[in-house]
Design a protein around this nucleic acid. Structure first.
Lengths: 354, 354
DNA sequence: TTGACTTATGCAATCGGTTGCAAATAACTT
DNA sequence: AAGTTATTTGCAACCGATTGCATAAGTCAA
């Protein structure tokens, strides 16, 4: 038997020393039954208005708070949702988390947050732990394989952000068109050889961007060097920038803004001016105006993505038939700011063409 | 009675269609009782090793996961902790959250995250909601009054970050010495009039910084203009910068890095060069190297703070006597980078003195 | 063989709610 | 006044675990 605070008198807890008021305590004081008190909260329409008023008054007086876990146990609904991201510290996620949290808050839901540290194994563990105490989970930029996602989805409502799997509710930020725009811009400005700093293999977004960059370079007849990032971080960007320089590119398209900033730092350290010597374009617009010179990037939409994701998740929880294939696609755009411009004169054989 | 999935046969659920395996199902298959199965997990030392092995095998086979909420209900321990911050999107917090989440993860705890949007009322609501399903809550940079914090602390284990209240476990990042250093640096570099962009009134950190700035200016005989931020955000910093310029200062000390960046943006937009015309110093080192020119700031330590806070919270949960007054103080330092330097010649009457 | 201890297991109450069903009371009909 | 229908309430089972206490089985010495 659990040890609880509160002295015991004749098998009953002494109300004076009781820590957390329960339904029973209210029932006792109101001289009625547990069921009635319970209904005073959940289905007041079934009760005599006077009774309800009295019960609510007592509840207020003794500071009663319903026990969420007990309720969850009997209803099967927890009122909690989970959100798993690869790395909270990556500036792409905080706005997303914020949007989800604030909307969850408005719906009376509590939010579990998990950061997997870019590790699929950890993500699995977190999922298991959260599955038992949430009504559904949002996987943002999951690093899990399709097979693993499917296994989880079979046992628990899921919504995906930036992962395209038919049959599961998902929100996608489509950056392909924006990448094409960006590459087009570079081509028109005399660049002939650019680098793409490639993010995690498991990342759907990265695959999309890489594909689009490849295709765009093919069309514009530019050379593309794909440089894999050791990790999608500031440091990863620094290291990759060096390789890009060695490859002799005049422009860099980075997996995301954080790596772009890392690249920027390293380029500056090497005495390479951005955008005079090398143009730099990030992705996600995660650092909107926080940087100087302002980073050219692809628009982020992470907040919109978050909002849609929570909505889809709630739908999925509601009617679990899952009959419809829910998919929301948000289109990103190329945002030209201060870090991208014409290729340096020496390289720009076709410069006048633009 | 709750509706659950799974058909019902003679009052018992058909195992074939049962969704989530329970203790009872294992007990049935292992031909033993609930208690034994339960103990196979919690106190295997009390059982016959053979029995334990058999039970674990069956559990594994049918994919059993203990129901956290049921367990919590009977043990009184949820295995969850809560973290409340004023604004996830403020770059000071993600590293803090990350540190706490990753340590919680290692301890097998799940983390609830709440962002109060700088509102005390919302923070109270979130607290109430979380209190019922956590073993303890960390309040980071709370915007609540001391009285409110006390009320909560009386009913639920709490640890504070950046709020000094005797009797409650707390982690403080002391920036006073660092502020003095920074102001001293400015004084030595010929500045005679500086501005402090003041953050939320409820913020302990802001009070500390403002006090220290005031005191340091008094000692160095500098003039100090205190400019309240409409909100501790990028936009707030932009607006405040304008006022600082109007006041005629040659240096700005901002409440945090985000507002400093906002100020920087506005100054640049006004054609004012940093640090030539105006020196700018942030606080928290939340954007370590993400910015150009690199922001001078006061070191952050948010990760260390997070780690300590979780440790204190666990201690508080453990022995709830709360006999000792736990307090951890981390000392910040002034970090000189590219945005601060000598006062412009015209203003620097004492310049040669340094 | 029997009493004294261990060791392994099961019984049943409990945590704090929810809810189907039935009983009690109130309100109308005719 | 008797019969019907609506309103309000209470009983008791249930959600899925934990755990104090008691019983059953096993060990061992005398």
């Amino acid at each position: 038997m659990p040890k609880r605070e509160g002295t015991t008198i004749a098998g009953k807890r002494d109300p004076k020393t009781r820590v957390k008021p329960t339904l029973d305590e209210i029932a006792e004081r109101a001289n009625t039954s547990r069921s009635t008190v319970s209904r005073a909260f959940s289905r007041p329409d079934l009760l005599n208005p006077k009774t309800v008023a009295q019960i609510l008054a007592i509840a207020e007086e003794i500071g009663y708070r319903p026990n969420n876990m007990a309720r969850a146990l009997s209803t099967g609904r927890t009122g909690n949702i989970g959100l798993l991201v690869p790395d909270i510290a990556n500036p792409f996620f905080p706005p997303l988390i914020k949007a989800i949290q604030s909307q969850a808050d408005a719906l009376g839901l509590c939010l579990f947050l998990g950061s997997s540290g870019e590790s699929g194994a950890r993500e699995n563990t977190l999922f298991e732990r959260l599955a038992g105490q949430t009504d559904g989970i949002i996987l943002a930029s999951t690093r899990l394989s399709e097979a693993q996602v499917k296994i989880h989805a079979a046992r628990h409502p899921i919504t995906l952000i930036n992962r395209d799997m038919a049959g599961l509710p998902r929100v996608l930020i489509d950056t392909q068109a924006a990448v094409m725009e960006a590459v087009g811009f570079l081509a028109e400005n005399g660049h002939r050889h650019i680098a793409y700093l490639s993010g995690p293999k498991e990342s759907w977004s990265n695959q999309q961007r890489m594909e689009a960059a490849t295709e765009a370079c093919r069309r514009t007849d530019m050379r593309l060097s794909i440089i894999p990032l050791s990790e999608p971080s500031f440091e990863g960007g620094e290291a990759a920038a060096e390789e890009a320089v060695a490859a002799g590119v005049t422009a860099i398209l980075a997996f995301d803004d954080l790596t772009a900033q890392g690249a920027h730092a390293r380029l500056s350290a090497l005495g390479i001016d951005v955008p005079r010597d090398i143009s730099l374009i990030g992705c996600d617009d995660a650092l909107p105006a926080m940087t100087y010179p302002a980073l050219s990037t692809l628009s982020g939409l992470s907040q919109e993505a978050g909002r849609h994701a929570l909505k889809l998740l709630c739908d999925a929880i509601e009617h679990r038939d899952g009959s419809q294939d829910m998919k929301v696609v948000l289109g990103a755009r190329f945002i030209l700011r201060d870090t991208a411009g014409p290729a340096p004169a020496g390289d720009a054989k076709d410069r006048d063409r633009s």
